[in-house]
Amino acid sequence: MPDPLMYALDAVAYAGIFGMLSLSLNLEYGYTNLANFGKVAFFMVGAYVAAVMARMKYPFAVYALVASLVAGFIGLLTSLPALRLREDFLAITMIALGEVMKLIVKNEEWLAGGVWGLSGIPPAVVVQGLSFRERLLVQIALIYGCLVACYVVCELIAKSPYGRVLKTIREDELLAAAYGKNVFRYKACTFALGSAVSGLAGALFAQYIGTVSPYMFEPTVTFSVWMMVILGGPANNTGAVLGAFLVEGFHRSSRLLKDYIGLPLDPINLQVMLTALLVITVVFYRPQGMLKERITPLDRGLLKKLKPMYRRVKTWVRS
């Protein structure tokens, strides 16, 4: 067992990356009722684009941007055929996309290193002379910077007329259309944005881990993200992030359980089985999640919440 603090910090970094995935799924599912069951595909695209570009020594800002753009574009392209149809068609298409993407990555060795993946991805921020632990802290700062940015974007969207349209579409597409909203465009736009955020998360993931391989991007990743949103509370961004922390904590503790108690179970199996049981239970008994969707009018909420936050950040920066 390595340094427990490192283990904890690693979990924190993971939770940050998954928090972004969870926020993006919340945008798609929580606000717009888009069943993206292929989250892992966009995460993977982001990670691979970042891996390839980082190895070519592009700076983080560039490859993170390209990774999100590519992921967003693929999301847009592949969702178009299914968006006009019912939710289940999108779900099926996306789950299939996840498999096909993995297939491509596995087979194109020249591009993506085949089954071995790509390794030797340099971290985004390289500062000379730091200890391992300090480097981890730098990583966490980077990841949480991106997470906060994503959170703010999602909150701004949720508390805007755009978000109101998304909620209208979620509850009743016909109503939205009858009152002049181009439902298809909104869905496509949201899906592209959600995919782009997943791509960014993928880029962070790649430079954090340092290697990518097809086996990191199993459908169980998608399922974990769904669990985060459903557990945390759909259409509640704070809930989505909270869900990410809970699920990551849950995963880690089930692994610890194995290490310390010595259960005669394979840790991965145990983890997946428990996760699956938990999701089924939540869907059964508390489909609205831990944090319920807040019903606040647009003129309240966001500014009230952001202003003191902004002030606090300002004083903190000054001091």
Binding site: I230, V272, M273, T275, F284
Partner: peptide, 12 residues
């Protein structure tokens, strides 16, 4: 969507 999620969970 909840039914689909539950079915994926059951599958896993």
């Amino acid at each position: 969507i909840h039914l689909m999620v539950a079915s994926i969970g059951l599958g896993l």
